[in-house]
Design a protein around this nucleic acid. Structure first.
Lengths: 208, 208
DNA sequence: TAGATTGTTAATCGATTAACAATC
DNA sequence: TAGATTGTTAATCGATTAACAATC
């Protein structure tokens, strides 16, 4: 199997994101070794090297990885060498918070439109992002060249809104609704399910 | 290895949470089979049976699982048969949104105190939750018998606030800060890292 | 009874780790 | 050069799936 067709495990990508962040803190340094990345992240050094080796030969035997080069390489791998246009669907508590979330913008994810069914919200602007009615989704999303939809609607509305977002051109969905979206395989979905995470904690505490 | 000492993979628990949710929708039904749970969740039927079998024999060969009994069993396993006292540390955009998040309360996670360093926020109440200064953390958390801390502070403050929360009696932390907290192994931690999730999507779209 | 479906064991699959030749 | 550290292969570990006897 060649490098090009080799399947990359989904598990590698979050680790790449972590290496990438660490490299920002270490950009004053010239080189960093897999051993150091191991100490910081808690992954083994072998795993660090293997993760990076999926994508090319970035290191220098005996010396480690050049921090600036590796950072730039990972940036390209993760697709962070460009801006992504993001639409927020559902301007409730959580959606509102995400409009002000700096972590997205810092990495090039720009929320350029928001949608809600509430007429009281439609037409307003939050953090310089205009709220449109959901009926206008396709027109607005096409015009603003949306790549990713962030879904922060109630559970009951999530499947429908997800389908609509895809129909209107979104290629990926970051889903905060506690539901398993059924969408074509070509659509990329990541779920953030806060209840499931906190339930994990209650499980762990309970059985101590 | 007996059932009692058998190590349960961390991966099983989020799946249990999903079965649990599905059982609410199916509580009108008498029985549900692993095949049906498989169809709904996308996990294999064998996995569903194995996940449940870690914790006991809940099924009935030839008939499936009694929906009400299984729901109650999973509730106990996940520690959802009681109320958990939660403290919110960091009342920014995201923290504010979580104070209004219904998904926690529905499962028995009650946010009973919030903390912030901003004097403009201290003393106010949001969604009937009082905001205290962080200096009062130990006094308030002891008095309110806090089990879990939800950490929504900026990255720079996260490690310090996490340590303080543990010192003040929290047994688990739900961490939204984009940082790998270094805490004793006895402390249970789950991380929700929204930037890492959206970066996963940009990676996937980029390489299509 | 015959059909359905469990719980569990064995087989498979995939991911992590160890080891080491290559090389800076 | 000697020491350090990579990239990669082989070994190990753990999780998932298949298969099926038990049983409702």
């Amino acid at each position: 199997m060649t490098k090009e067709t080799q399947k990359i495990s989904q598990k590698v990508i979050p680790r790449l994101s972590r290496y990438y962040r660490i490299l920002f803190e270490y950009s004053g340094r010239d080189m960093i070794s897999s051993k150091e990345l191991s100490d910081i992240t808690g992954y083994t050094a072998a795993q660090v090297r293997k993760d990076l080796a999926y994508f090319g030969q970035f290191g220098c035997p005996g010396r480690g990885y050049n921090t600036v080069d590796l950072k730039n390489s990972i940036r390209k791998i993760l697709g962070l060498d460009r801006t992504w246009n993001v639409a927020l669907i559902g301007v409730g508590n959580l959606g509102m918070a995400l409009l002000g979330y700096k972590g997205f913008k810092e990495q090039g994810f720009e929320i350029v439109a928001a949608f809600d069914t509430d007429p009281g919200k439609v037409g307003s602007s939050i953090n310089n992002v205009e709220v449109f009615q959901t009926e206008k989704m396709c027109r607005v999303m096409t015009q603003k060249k949306i790549d990713i939809a962030v879904l922060t609607v109630p559970r009951e509305a999530a499947q429908g809104m997800a389908e609509e977002a895809i129909r209107c051109g979104a290629k990926a969905i970051l889903n905060f609704a506690p539901i398993n979206l059924k969408l074509p395989d070509s659509v990329k979905v990541r779920n953030i399910d806060m209840s499931i995470e906190i339930e994990n904690l209650s499980f762990l505490i309970s059985r101590q």
